[in-house]
Design a protein around this nucleic acid. Structure first.
Lengths: 200, 200
DNA sequence: CAGGGGTGTTACCGGTCAGTAACTAGATAA
DNA sequence: TTATCTAGTTACTGACCGGTAACACCCCTG
């Protein structure tokens, strides 16, 4: 007895709590169809639950959107530790690995760009709870990329980071308007040229 | 007599026909607030008319969206003739002028990115009437940029064009998530570096 | 003058939206 | 056991959505 101390309740078939199922379903639907195109009923149904349970966990749809982007933001920020773990003490190898990882996202045929950037397009209201999540995550990404470029020993780390940042954002948004056979297929070549130019 | 042969009717105060007012109002509202966030009633009211007149000119809201993007597409394609007129027979100067013109769009504090790219984010349905307009315009832009780079005499015109294309798309989308003080402020520097590298 | 086409106005349709109330079932914890 | 907490279910609200019907208006043309 005294086994399940509150953290494992109501696991009928899947043992995933409703809150997590809701966030997972919402993330997928928001990303595939767009935030404004998805209703809360559809999210609840895709999560195998209902609207009331959704509203017991989230004050509003906007808050659910923010929570989805918050989780994505956390996941995105994990890449820096992973790069360091894969190439410890070798920032240049980490930069190359970053480029390859980014290329994987760009070339993924299921990709619909960056969910955060897409949300910024769909939600222009400055006071939307998702906006600070978006801006915070992008800012953190930029800072981590600058730090990596600095450790790589380039003369102008901020410039290199911003060039790579814009290149990646551009490639991701390109796939949605020109497809994966458009300019985005030059992502690696372009990124490598930028890095090489900075490494002399 | 026989003056106004049908082209100047119903010009009460402004002499702009309702259809054009509707498209102008829709373009502004779609761009500022997002396509899905704007209702047809709001468009009609902003155009100084009503919903019935709107639906007499457009079969549906989706068709109105497509028409808005079609007009934007036409305007965007005018840039190539303008560059040629301003720097006749000097493709390298035209490329520089393109970069400066693009920089103007990026740094404009009222800019919310490219309306076509934003629409591609908001309208993922493959059969939406706006999609072929988006893809067609982006494709044409890419081809014109490749042609300009080729005339400029660089060794790999397709690569240069795609690099500049991604850079511009990235800068435009960046302004919506990281603001105008983010990576986008390095647009000109980055673009110039790319061009210089190709011109040896 | 008579006619007609483009416009304005009002009211309406069915559907969907975000969000809530009230109640039931089931599992846990004392 | 009893009490409590969470989740499921149904039904509902009021607002708004895209789109339409019917009719009055007005200016232009014949």
């Amino acid at each position: 007895m005294t086994e399940t101390k509150g953290l494992a309740r109501n696991e009928s078939p899947d043992r995933i709590p409703p809150r997590d199922r809701i966030v997972a379903a919402a993330r997928e639907l928001f990303y595939r169809q767009g935030i404004r195109a998805v209703g809360v009923d559809a999210i609840a149904e895709a999560a195998g639950t209902n609207k009331m349970t959704l509203y017991r966990h989230f004050a509003s749809k906007d808050e659910l959107v923010a929570e989805c982007l918050r989780r994505l933001s956390v996941e995105k920020n994990e890449v820096w530790a992973r790069l360091e773990a894969e190439h410890p003490g070798d920032p240049r190898a980490q930069l190359q690995a970053w480029l390859r990882e980014a290329a994987g996202n760009v070339s993924d045929p299921r990709s619909r760009g960056c969910a955060l950037a897409n949300a910024a397009v769909e939600l222009p209201e400055k006071d939307h709870p998702a906006r600070q999540v978006i801006e915070q995550c992008k800012q953190t990404t930029r800072e981590n990329l600058v730090a990596l470029c600095r450790r790589a020993g380039v003369a102008r780390p901020e410039l290199l980071a911003d060039q790579l940042f814009m290149l990646l954002e551009g490639a991701l948004v390109c796939t949605q308007s020109t497809g994966h056979a458009g300019p985005a297929c030059q992502f690696v070549t372009a990124g490598q040229a930028i890095i090489d130019a900075h490494l002399r």
